[in-house]
Design a protein around this nucleic acid. Structure first.
Lengths: 248, 248
DNA sequence: TTGTTTTAGTGGTATAGACAACTAGAATAT
DNA sequence: ATATTCTAGTTGTCTATACCACTAAAACAA
């Protein structure tokens, strides 16, 4: 039974932080499986004799870090996690890697539909609450982690997207299976440092330099297709742009 | 005065969210300037007759979104602005900053001629040992350090370059005084962390994220014009690129 | 059987208060 | 003058409680 007290109220370490670390450990060790519902906030509060608000602070942090997902009226669930399914495909990332003489790879970390919220809805031209595919992929080059990518596509625009499809090339599926033509993209790039979750996936140290990339892709008819947010390893990736005066 | 109630407790919109949007607006409109301290949590709570915990929820979200920075014992401050404006095609630093609504500035740190060596000579299409101008400049936006730049130009291509000229726009000098037309550029971007010297000039902490930029500019006739290596502040600068499908 | 209502349980929002940890400057003592 | 202590103000943590909004399944009604 273990006098595994878990929470030490006398410790100078904040209670919410103790609980946060404890839950994170459960998730990382696999004691709490992806998709599994964790004890409710009220249960946790009673279990460790702490306030529900304190539980919420711990849960909040893990939600922000991508470990947990809240669903009002249903519960709090462990986020999808590391499922291996590498496959080759023709994507801009893949083309990019091949042009650099490296072999691209992909690991789909999660694939689900989520309701569009705020900025995402705006960026994708859908109304808030509409379903979006949310795909998280780890992109590899010569087997080494190169980027962590999160992709959002409106479900009603590309119905029938499956986990199998996203393990390959999404663009190829859209152009060849759906007959839609991709027109343009706007990309922003900024420098940052790896947060914990990112560092773990990319196998780098927390705080190491990364390149944050956000791409908004449009179809030729102007409809927004996708929003992709990527985190590239700063030590392995260099972005290259060719520009011409006056042109675009 | 105006019954700008700001907070409507009867509204179905959560109070914390109302406050969050209100504060975000203040920041985006510039009513609250970067670095400025915002009212304390207790002040805000009293001001709008809401609970401090509710204020905290609003502030928390803005902190997570990068709008605010908390400092225990001191207060909560508006974070440095992130610039996000499209960079169309090839522009100079000055054009870039002006298009983003900021006033560019330049401090010339050094101006000398050095012999071309190895890669530089190759990149600039000159023979090793040929004279190059080497210019180191601190680029400012609205008076704040934005980038540290080192520039190499073959002397025989642009004779007559002076310290006065480089304190302004080099591109303007080349196009207007010399009559040469800039054609294209290849730019690489990568993430890194500030080294000591860079950190000092850019007034940021050693190890903070920076964007390393290297640009190789060519004239319309194809002759290499310059190689520029820049270190941009990661917290103040964001690159935006528009692309069209066909290539990458 | 089918549709509707109720109910228990979940996370979401909000309150009022308390004390701790920290900061910077003022007041004090040396 | 130079330390030292005090103090007012800040964010950080935590509690106990209350009600709302939403979900899913059970209970009920037609």
């Amino acid at each position: 039974m273990g006098g595994c007290a878990v929470i030490d109220k006398q410790s100078p370490i904040p209670i919410y932080y103790q609980l946060e670390q404890y839950m994170k450990e459960k998730i990382e060790k696999g004691e709490w499986q992806p998709g599994e519902m964790i004890p409710s906030e009220r249960e946790l509060a009673e279990m460790y004799d702490i306030s529900r608000m304190t539980v919420r602070q711990a849960v909040n942090n893990l939600v922000n870090d991508g470990y947990l997902i809240r669903r009002r009226g249903k519960g709090t669930f462990v986020a999808a996690n590391k499922i291996e399914q590498p496959l080759k495909g023709l994507t801009s990332f893949s083309e990019d890697m091949r042009s650099r003489g490296m072999e691209p790879g992909t690991i789909v970390l999660s694939f689900e539909t989520v309701p569009a919220s705020g900025k995402l809805a705006e960026g994708l031209g859908v109304t808030e609450g509409d379903d979006l595919y949310e795909v998280r992929r780890l992109r590899l080059a010569d087997g080494l982690p190169m980027a962590l990518e999160t992709l959002y596509i409106p479900v009603n625009l590309v119905p029938g997207l499956t986990r199998d499809v996203v393990s390959g090339s999404v663009y190829e599926f859209i152009e060849k299976e759906k007959g839609m033509i991709i027109g343009s993209a706007v990309q922003t790039l900024e420098a940052s440092v790896a947060r914990k979750v990112e560092a773990e996936h990319l196998k780098m140290k927390e705080g190491a330099p990364v390149l944050l990339l956000e791409r908004r892709t449009h179809l030729v008819d102007g409809r927004p297709l996708e929003v992709v947010k990527s985190v590239y390893r700063g030590d392995r990736y260099k972005f290259m742009i060719e520009m011409k005066r006056g042109g675009s």
